[in-house]
Design a protein around this nucleic acid. Structure first.
Length: 574
RNA sequence: CGGGGCGUAGCUCAGCCAGGUAGAGUGCCGGCUUUGGGAGCCGGUGGUCGCCGGUUCGAAUCCGGCCGCCCCGACCA
């Protein structure tokens, strides 16, 4: 491809609205242009990268026997109502109506559509397992799209779904996907880590997230250097009774203290001169319509995902201020566990087990209590692991200190079990002639997000430095002086010989000066470059160098350069 | 949804406080010169100052409403 025809609109300056490297560089390097909030046009260079990532994905999924199909972007509300997700998905799902006032959603994912297909077409255990995937545009109406393609509303995703007669078959396919994902991310040049994760809105049992480690990632990963345990923030387990405690003390009577206008642990702790750890945080949640009080030590936070799992509910959210007043008789900020109505279920985090002389809200506006003792003044209905784990907390497997790192979620695989098939009546006939719901797995991979993650991990001040397997071109030819017939003629010959040896070459045939060509080459990040200039040609050579080590210049005869660069690239691939 | 910020040339921004001919750099077009890290000189193109309304002799500037974009937060009591 000749640059003059390639449509690569590079920018000299950073766009004002981009903060992370991948977003900034994708716009500057002519990969991406915004169309609306969280919605982008993928320019030709981006499309080439996407096609390469997709090709790798297809090759690896084909290897594990997955078969590609395409489902529609638009799906009817009825399918979503069958599983209850029409309501559950909330505003994240983009809804619209056709001319007949029928309701549809822009597919944020496709479990319902594929399960509908399976229940119509798959009848017998003899047909199982079935393993299908698609690569398709998804739409999620994110609350706050940001970071360019990293959290966009419209994005490209590979989503796979498998159907099985039994758990062993599901496990086999699940494991195959985990391995295929590993190969995909490796081939894309990404440093990643598979972690235990929360299943979020998809639901199901076992699941793993694939995280690309990057400071700009939106997810938190807790990992153990000692034993290899790794989990997402939503999932990371606490260790019961393993948390450091303030010094012990004699039992004190329960007393009310006046704490006007002090609503937060921090405010009250400052007023009473008490450690945050000697507080009980009493959080009231609305869990599928019933109110639950969740208790956690004052210096820690409740992990709503864990609470949701413990309660076995679909949704938890903080109770409204009105509801809080109704239950506690006090304004928000003064809830305590000891005088709550009997019908409020109290779940306490292990960090409070056996504790005494605690500070809590008094269920009376502007008042707290001191001397609260678990067991004497309040007995929680249940104990559970509810708190959000942070770096430094002990590893639930081996006890070593966990490390906290940021990551970009690029893949997520789930064992769904019969969640969707049972809800939708998707069954098959087993060996005994019984109708049983399919066991399902689902496997997501963010194609556009992989591209962003690759840039986050592979860039410098000058621009992108693509890993070869996903680079839009493999080599960029830079004739320095388009007015020099010898330079132009050599470049053209080299361009032809690149084609002859199967190298994807971009020829910068613009009449621009050397400096601006170099700067653009750094920016768009083609992994190899060959410079053709009068200076080198005087010695009968052109100069080849990799993007990530521009100083390692090899002087090569023009007629051999293409083949030699081809060899360098192949050598690295091995 | 709440809070904050921004909206002026393709891009990055100044001008607004204190109303009076719409600017800079960069890009783009033409010319000359130059040609190994975003060159130099000369000339030029390019803007309903986000939109609507109000105040005023006069509004990019002041006031009100709306729209869009960005950032922070979205209940951790």
């Amino acid at each position: 491809m000749r640059w003059s025809q390639a449509f690569i609109p590079t920018l000299k300056e950073d766009p004002a609205d981009a903060e992370v490297a991948s977003h900034r560089l994708m716009v500057r390097a002519g990969l991406l242009r915004p169309v609306a909030r969280g919605i982008y046009t993928y320019l030709p260079l981006m499309q080439r990268v996407l096609l390469k990532v997709q090709r790798i994905v297809r090759e690896e999924l084909d290897r594990i026997g997955a078969v590609e199909l395409v489902m529609p972007i638009l799906s009817p509300a009825e399918l979503w109502r069958e599983t209850g997700r029409w309501d559950l998905y909330g505003d994240l799902m983009m809804r619209l109506e056709d001319r007949h006032d029928r309701a549809y959603a822009l597919g944020p994912t496709h479990e319902e559509v594929i399960t509908d297909l399976a229940r119509q077409e798959v009848r017998s255990y003899r047909d199982l397992p079935v393993n299908l995937y698609q690569i398709q545009t998804k739409f999620r109406d994110e609350i706050r799209p940001r970071f360019g393609v990293m959290r966009a509303r419209e994005f490209v995703m590979k989503d796979g779904y498998s159907f099985h007669a039994d758990a062993a078959s599901l496990a086999e396919t699940y494991d195959a996907y985990v391995e295929a994902y590993g190969r995909i991310f490796e081939r894309c040049g990404l440093g990643f880590r598979a972690v235990e994760a929360s299943s979020g809105a998809i639901g199901g049992d076992e699941n793993h997230e694939f995280m690309v480690l990057a400071d700009t990632g939106e997810s938190l990963v807790l990992s153990c250097g000692a034993c290899g345990y790794a989990a997402s923030e939503e999932r990371a387990e606490g260790v019961p009774a393993a948390h450091d405690l303030p010094p012990g003390h004699a039992p004190n009577p329960l007393e009310e203290v006046h704490t006007p206008e002090r609503k937060t642990v921090e405010d009250v702790a400052a007023l009473l001169e008490r450690d945050h750890r000697s507080f009980v945080k009493t959080l009231l949640f609305d869990a599928d319509g019933t109110t639950t009080a969740a208790l956690v030590r004052g210096d820690r936070e409740i992990n709503e995902e864990k609470l949701k799992r413990h309660l076995g509910v679909q949704r938890v959210e903080m109770a409204s201020p009105e509801r809080v007043r109704e239950i506690t008789g006090a304004a928000v900020g003064y809830a305590g566990p000891h005088t709550l109505p009997d019908d409020v279920r109290i779940v306490a985090d292990y960090s409070l087990a056996g504790r005494g002389d605690l500070v809590a809200g008094a269920n009376r506006t502007d008042w707290h209590v001191t001397g609260l003792e678990i067991g004497r003044d309040v007995e929680p209905d249940e104990w559970a692991d509810l708190m959000t784990i942070v770096g430094g907390d002990p590893c639930p497997r081996c006890g070593a200190a966990l490390e906290e790192t940021r990551g970009i979620e690029v893949g997520h695989v789930f064992k769904l079990g019969a969640k969707y098939s049972a809800a939708m009546g998707a069954t098959f006939q087993d060996e005994d002639g019984e109708q049983r719901p399919f066991l399902m797995g689902c496997y997501g991979l963010g194609v556009t997000r992989v591209v962003a993650a690759a840039i986050e991990q592979n860039h410098d001040e000058g621009g992108i430095a693509w890993p070869v397997p996903i680079a839009p071109y493999e080599v960029e030819l830079i004739p320095l002086n388009m007015d020099s017939p010898e330079v132009v003629e050599t470049a053209e010959r080299l361009y032809e010989s690149c084609r002859a040896v199967g190298l994807e070459a971009l020829l910068d045939d613009r009449p621009d000066r050397a400096g601006s060509k170099f700067a653009d080459a750094d920016l768009i990040g083609i992994p190899w470059r060959i410079v053709i200039g009068d200076r080198g040609l005087a010695d009968g050579v052109v100069e080849a160098a990799p993007r990530e080590a521009k100083a390692d210049v090899e002087k090569l005869p023009p007629d051999e350069a293409a083949a030699l660069v081809r060899e360098r690239i192949e050598a690295r691939r091995r």
